[in-house]
Simulated scan of single mutants.
Amino acid sequence: MSIGSIDQMTAQMRLMAAQAGGVQGLASEPVAPGNQTSAFGEMLKNSIDKVNELQGTGNAMAKAFELGSEEYSLAEVMIAKQKASVAMQATVQVRNKFMEAYKEVMRMSL
C-alpha cells in the first residue's frame, strides 16, 4: 500500500465520517500538514463519544422500558439498541483496518 493510497483512504474516511456523524468542517476544510494529527485525533474522539452516547441512550431507554415506563415503545427501544450495536461494530471494524494498515506500514523497509 502506497502513501498516496493511504492518504486517499484517510480522505474518504473523513468524508464518510463527516457525512455519517454530522461533523461539520472536516470534509470541506483543508487540513494543514502539521495539524493532521490533531484533526484526526479530534475526529476519532468525536466518533467514539458519539458511539458512547448512542450506547448510553439505548441502555437508558431499555432500562426505562423494563421498569414499565410508557415513555418508549418496544420498537423505539429496539431501534436505539440496534443503532448502538451497529455503531460499535463499525468502530471496531475501523479500528481493525487501522491496525492492519499500521502493521503494514511498520513492515515496510526504508
Rank of each mutant, 00 (worst) to 15 (best):
S38H: 11
A80D: 12
Q82I: 02
L15G: 10
S85A: 11
A11K: 11
A90H: 07
L67I: 02
F65S: 08
K45E: 14
M16H: 06
M16F: 05
T10C: 08
N96I: 09
M78N: 10
G68A: 06
K97C: 07
Y102V: 09
I79W: 03
G58R: 05
L15N: 15
K83S: 07
S73F: 04
T37F: 06
Q89E: 13
M108L: 13
N52F: 06
T10Y: 02
R95Y: 10
V31F: 03
V31Y: 01
F40V: 06
P33V: 00
F40E: 12
I48Q: 12
K63F: 10
E53W: 00
M61T: 02
S28W: 04
G41R: 08
G21S: 00
E53C: 03
S109D: 15
M16P: 05
N46A: 06
A90S: 11
F98P: 01
E76A: 04
A27S: 15
S85I: 03
G34P: 05
P30S: 08
A80F: 06
S28Y: 04
I79M: 11
L74E: 10
K50C: 03
A101T: 07
L44T: 05
M99H: 08
S5V: 02
K103D: 12
M1K: 09
S47I: 02
